[in-house]
Design a protein around this nucleic acid. Structure first.
Lengths: 187, 187
DNA sequence: TGTACATCAGTGAACGCGCGTTCACTGATGTAC
DNA sequence: TGTACATCAGTGAACGCGCGTTCACTGATGTAC
């Protein structure tokens, strides 16, 4: 049953969106293609009409996300709150962006395709630049330093909070790092 | 071919060691039991003489590491250098400890057994306490804050550095966070 | 505008490989006499 | 101390399940006349 071109584009977008959400939640190996396609409301066979392989999927997701990041001028202050909130740490379903994907996909990036790695690396660069622009107006190198330290702390905090089985400890880690990063970004 | 009790204990220790090294390098799903056993110089069938399952293996490793951490009074300053050095980030083979495992295993900890999760959570607590003890002698709560922020930044930095396909960017991230943490720990 | 047909997105059964797990067997260990 | 035997750590072939991938088929789309 062929569908209209518009519908097909919509389907592909839906696959990308659902896959992104699931990878973010469970990591690359923790998600099956069948699961992705089911979430997108299709059968697994249709997958290969849109992507060459699972590896190709992750590369396209990262490229797509990186592009989106470049375009949008989000208020990082509010991202910080959302990103490091206990709710986000637990549910993760809402929103799908590089900051949230990094802890889930970073570790086994080594085994992914050059395309995927390049896209994630580029995302890291963009993220650092964006955070640097937010840092109090000192020398640019100092802004960059603050950005790198803040961003690292955010990624590490989310990872540790997710790994912890104690919600209180997780909340403490997120709160401390959120406070620390805010102080850093306010000078 | 039965082996002596001493040899058997040695074999189990070797399995734990090699598995730890491999998991740290490639993550839980990236390593097969056959690979672990081959590295330990045994055949894969022998695995179930020592562990109930792959899941049991990761739990025992984390418990073992946590215990070791509690006992040893390592100089964290030197750990910091080693941990955040570009060499360590790339090779990873040398040394096998919670700080280095956290970025590799943290993300999919959600899917592991309660035992494994508990052991890792306890390790996070121990690590925070140890770092807090190193922070300049202010109020204990302030020491703890510094420890959480520093440790998060270290974990995040290692993760981002590993994810990056650009060695220069990786080195920069590690260097900046190393410098930042040092400053924080020195007051 | 209406009809006939080629295209091709999606379906779902089937394939095949990899990996965790099992099991019958081997032969060295270590104990009982 | 020496011998006979039960134990059991390790071996390696085999199993079976899950998942990425393929493929023959379907039927709606959209184009050509």
């Amino acid at each position: 049953m062929k569908v209209s071109r518009a519908q097909m584009a919509e389907n592909k977008a839906k696959i990308l969106e659902e896959a992104c959400r699931l990878f973010q939640q469970k990591g690359f190996d923790g998600v099956t293609l069948a699961e992705v396609m089911r979430s997108a409301g299709l059968t697994h066979g249709a997958f290969y009409g849109h992507f060459r392989s699972k590896e190709d999927l992750i590369a396209q997701i990262l490229q797509h996300r990186c592009e989106k990041m470049r375009q949008s001028d989000v208020d990082l202050g509010s991202i910080l709150d959302a990103y490091l909130s206990p709710q986000h740490c637990e549910s993760q379903g809402t929103g799908c962006h590089i900051p949230a994907m990094a802890p889930a996909l970073g570790p086994d990036m080594v085994h992914h395709s050059p395309e995927a790695r390049a896209a994630l690396t580029e995302s890291i660069r963009v993220q650092i630049d964006r955070m640097a622009a937010l840092a109090p107006a000192e020398a640019p190198e100092e802004q960059r330093r603050i950005a790198i330290r803040s961003w690292s702390a955010m990624v590490g905090a989310l990872l540790l909070a997710k790994a912890s089985d104690d919600p209180a400890l997780a909340a403490e880690i997120l709160a401390e790092v959120r406070a620390g990063v805010k102080t850093g970004l306010e000078g």
